[in-house]
Write a protein that binds this DNA or RNA. Sequence first.
DNA 1: CTGGTTGCAAACTCTTTGCAATCCT
DNA 2: AGGATTGCAAAGAGTTTGCAACCAG
Lengths: 130, 130
Amino acid sequence: MEKYLNTLRAEGYKITGNRKEVLQILLDNRKPLTLKDIHRLCANIDFATIYRMINVFVDLGIVYEVKLLEKQIHYELMDADDHHHHIICKNCGKIARIDLCVVNTAKKLTDFQITNHTLEFKGLCPQCKK
Amino acid sequence: MEKYLNTLRAEGYKITGNRKEVLQILLDNRKPLTLKDIHRLCANIDFATIYRMINVFVDLGIVYEVKLLEKQIHYELMDADDHHHHIICKNCGKIARIDLCVVNTAKKLTDFQITNHTLEFKGLCPQCKK
DNA sequence: CTGGTTGCAAACTCTTTGCAATCCT
DNA sequence: AGGATTGCAAAGAGTTTGCAACCAG
C-alpha cells in the first residue's frame, strides 16, 4: 500500500480516503476487476469517482488494463516482477493466470516498437468442462 | 465469395444484395475492420443491418472478432488456414499481421479447455517510430 | 487557504431491439 | 405466399464530462 501512496505523493496527487479504500480493494483482490466490480465492492464511492481514480492509477502505472475477451476492461494492480496473462471461464467467469508471454519474440519479428500487448484466453475451467 | 454464400445457403440464410455487398467489402479489405469502418464503406446500408449481418457472419464462422487494443471490436474474414494475430500503430492506426501464436502452448499449460484466445500488440510502426 | 477531489446529473458514444415495410426463394 | 431481412427510430448500456461543494496538505 505504502508503495502506491508514495507514487501518488511523488506525482502531486492527494491521499484521500477514497483512494486508500480503492487501493485496499485492489490489494485484497489481486485479480482483474472491472469498474463495476470495484464499484460493487465500495458502493459508497460514486462511480464517476472510481472511473477517474482508476484512470489516474493507470496513468501512474499503479494499475494496468487487462483486456480479457469480454466487453469491459478489467484492471489489476501493477507488479513489474510478476508479468502474466489470464484465462477466463466462459461458464462461471473464473479468471486464472497463465505464466506465458511472447512479447519478446514479437519484438524480434516486427519492425514496430511495441508498447502494449495483450494475450488472453477463454474457455471452460476444470470444473465447468466436465 | 461463393464459399461464403454456400455457408449462408446451407444454414438457411438468404443471399441478399446487402450481404453480397458487405462480403465483397470484406474480401477487398482483408484486414480487421470495425462496424463503423464497414458502414463507412457502404453508407447506403443501415448501421443496424450491418450490425445484425456481421453477428450472423460471426455465428456462422464467416468472420471472426479481432479484439485489438482498441475500444471497438474489429472483424476479419475467417480463413482457417491462415491463423495470425495483429499489431496496430498507436500513431497512424496501421494494422500489420504477426505470424505468431501460442495457443497450443497454453493448452498444455492449463487445465482449461480453451475455446478463444487473443494476442494483439500495439506500438509504433516503422514510419511513426522515427 | 487553495487547488485537487468528489458527488450528482447530464451528455455522449456505441450497442441492441421493436416493428412495419420490403425482399428472397 | 411466407418467412427472412431491412430501415428507421428509439431504447439500453457503458463511458466521459461540467460544475459546485468538499477535503487534504
